[in-house]
Simulated scan of single mutants.
Amino acid sequence: MSEIVFILGAGASVPAGAPIMSDFLDRARDIWADPHRVVAEDVPHYQRVFNALQVLQAVHSKSNLDLVNIESVFTLLEMAELLQRMPGNFENPGDALSSLKKVIAATLSASVRFPVANRGIGQAAGYAGFVDMLQRIGEIDRGRHSISVVTFNYDLGLDFSLLGRGIQYGLGEEQRQGVPVFKLHGSLNWVSKEETGEVIPLMPDALMRTIDPLRWVGEETVPLNFYANLKTSAAEIGIAGVSSDPVIVPPTWKKGEHQRSLARVWQGAAMHLNEAQYIFVCGYSLPETDGFFKMLYALGTAGGQPLRTFHVLDPDPNVDQRFRALLGPGAQGRYRYQQGFFEDLPGTVLRYFGQ
């Protein structure tokens, strides 16, 4: 279990190029319009998603829904698939949901970039300082402090910044060394078995061995578009019989065929929260609609170790009040809010440990 738990949201990947949830669809539209950035096979999926958004504008006549935030749209399309109902004469809602997953994967893969270094890749912007901080205070530093990361992000900014250091996803994978990273809503490098739905992570180190680094000659930064060839990459690694789509799920109660595998991830996150004495939150705004994290935090921390600190770092001061409302009396006295960005997190954390 972990003494220190980091909770990261979309804001943590912004320095690496990822959009935040509220401007994700704007970024997707920009990529769709740029022939140098969009993959031809993805064009119909972008078209279907934006057609669906146009049709969904009809809901505004009787209800108020956020059609700008990508997670709200994700949840809405999942409900439309469940009900088999969309405004107008729109095609199968399940097709729109499938296309949205591909658009999310394509947009993140085109946006998050890594520096080219020594015929390989370096750490994504923002994550270099974060990983260095983990080394200084974590298990790599003679085991003084145990560390884990809970993240809502699908992208691979953190995963590939931990290359060579090891990563544990909590999915029951064989690897037992490295930083525990619980990706609550899935990841662009996770695939599922076609017959059973079991979720299997394609480990970053193994994926890198499927790439010819010579194609990066002359480039300063590169995207990692593994999502487009996941089935092929899995076969090269020695994993057969998997679907071609990455496992990414919306922040809702319905986890579909991946329920059992993802339950392991949530259970692992809860156990680590239970033992945490230091919790640092960055890039996650605790939206009012996210009741799932509130329940995960409440049940995960019940009866666990007493907190020494619960520190939230975010540029939006409104986030302060949301977290204050989340915490019970025993945690209120340990709560700290700091207005800042992900790049400010390492310095903030190191001060707690005298570094």
Rank of each mutant, 00 (worst) to 15 (best):
4 I>W: 01
5 V>K: 05
8 L>V: 03
8 L>Y: 08
14 V>D: 03
14 V>Q: 11
19 P>H: 06
25 L>N: 04
26 D>G: 06
30 D>E: 15
31 I>N: 04
32 W>R: 15
33 A>L: 13
35 P>W: 02
36 H>Q: 12
38 V>A: 03
39 V>C: 05
44 P>D: 11
44 P>E: 08
48 R>G: 03
54 Q>T: 08
60 H>C: 02
64 N>C: 07
64 N>A: 15
64 N>H: 08
67 L>A: 05
70 I>A: 08
71 E>Q: 07
72 S>Q: 09
72 S>M: 12
73 V>L: 11
73 V>E: 01
79 M>F: 10
85 R>I: 02
94 G>M: 15
96 A>H: 01
103 V>Q: 08
109 S>Y: 01
111 S>C: 03
114 F>R: 04
119 R>S: 10
120 G>Q: 07
120 G>V: 06
121 I>C: 00
122 G>F: 06
124 A>R: 01
127 Y>A: 02
134 L>W: 02
135 Q>V: 10
142 R>N: 11
144 R>H: 11
145 H>I: 14
148 S>Y: 04
148 S>R: 09
149 V>R: 04
155 D>E: 12
156 L>K: 04
158 L>D: 08
158 L>M: 11
158 L>W: 00
163 L>D: 01
169 Y>I: 03
171 L>R: 11
172 G>L: 05
174 E>Q: 14
176 R>K: 13
185 H>G: 02
186 G>K: 08
187 S>L: 02
188 L>T: 03
191 V>Y: 03
195 E>V: 11
195 E>P: 00
200 I>W: 01
201 P>R: 07
208 M>A: 03
210 T>I: 03
215 R>P: 00
221 T>W: 06
222 V>L: 09
224 L>A: 03
234 A>V: 02
239 I>L: 06
240 A>Q: 12
243 S>M: 07
244 S>K: 09
245 D>T: 11
245 D>G: 01
248 I>D: 02
249 V>C: 13
249 V>S: 12
249 V>W: 07
252 T>E: 08
253 W>T: 13
254 K>D: 14
258 H>Q: 14
259 Q>E: 15
259 Q>H: 10
261 S>R: 11
262 L>V: 13
262 L>K: 08
266 W>S: 11
268 G>L: 12
273 L>R: 06
274 N>Y: 07
274 N>A: 13
278 Y>Q: 09
284 Y>Q: 06
285 S>F: 04
290 D>P: 00
294 K>F: 04
296 L>K: 06
296 L>P: 00
297 Y>T: 10
298 A>D: 12
298 A>H: 09
301 T>D: 07
302 A>P: 00
303 G>S: 10
305 Q>P: 00
305 Q>R: 14
308 R>H: 05
310 F>P: 00
311 H>A: 12
311 H>P: 00
315 P>R: 12
315 P>S: 12
316 D>A: 15
321 Q>R: 14
321 Q>C: 07
324 R>C: 09
326 L>Y: 05
329 P>Y: 07
330 G>S: 12
333 G>H: 12
333 G>F: 04
338 Q>M: 13
344 D>T: 10
346 P>F: 05
347 G>Y: 06
349 V>N: 10
353 F>L: 15
354 G>D: 12
